[in-house]
Amino acid sequence: MINRTRYLTQSVAKILIWIGALSTIAMMILILFQILREGLPVLHLGFFLDSPKNMGREGGIFTTIVGTVALTAVAIIVGAPLGVGTAIFLREYTRESKTSRVIRFGTDCLAGVPSIIFGLFGFVFFVIRLNMGWSILSGGLTLAAMILPTVISTAEESIKTIPSSYREVSYSLGGTRWQTITRVVLPSALPGIFTGILLSIGRSIGETAAIILTAGSSLVMPTSLFSPSRTMSVHFYILAREGISMKMAYGTGAALILLVLMVNIIAQWLINRYIRHRT
């Protein structure tokens, strides 16, 4: 009798867990489907290549694509070297020490800081204090700070998986520490580092709160790093929230989803390939 209850409980519990897991996936598909269904028909070549007209009611989203690419580029150019440098230092120059614990704590904390706080910081520091104004540079630098934890942790993970025998061979051939890093460690860790950069690109594309406060929301075509700019996410947000055009909002949303999906699928594919390659 007791045995039967045990197995009954088990069956019920397992069924509930199946329902939970499947409904999560179903919800995700539903959310994407409901936006793509309305948004995909809006997507034509002209939608991507025309500049927004009349506040975004007509035309396309070209300037916001330019803005998104420019901001993301600044973020990666600044954030990636800093993040990879940190990871190299944590893995190759120091083992568990007080320094590394402090750095890890800082990185973990930074990862938890909400984007609106980054936005406030970027606004008062880059926009006002450093006098960069609402610009691609201010927004890009703020984004660079936001993606740092992602770049650090993925780069660290991939450096960690490199067998120590690789390094030993390099040292035994008379290689210095820096030679070992640039010729042996970094090339082997490259796919992992690239994955981290792709995830950061995804995050930059989707970010809204921090960008609206640091890069502004101008629809004018940016001409330099000091031009204000509107990204796709910000455009989408403004179209939807101010009820400017639901049709255009759906279109921009669908474009955003496709872009983020693409970036993440490539990243996932790289991770899987990389894991299989290693083991």
Partner: peptide, 22 residues
């Protein structure tokens, strides 16, 4: 090594800046 050490403190530095300015 010194340059990398400096780099490694970037996240702490940024966290400090954020805290200070907010």
């Amino acid at each position: 090594e010194k340059i990398l050490l400096l780099t490694a403190f970037s996240s702490i530095f940024i966290l400090g800046l954020i805290t200070f300015f907010i």
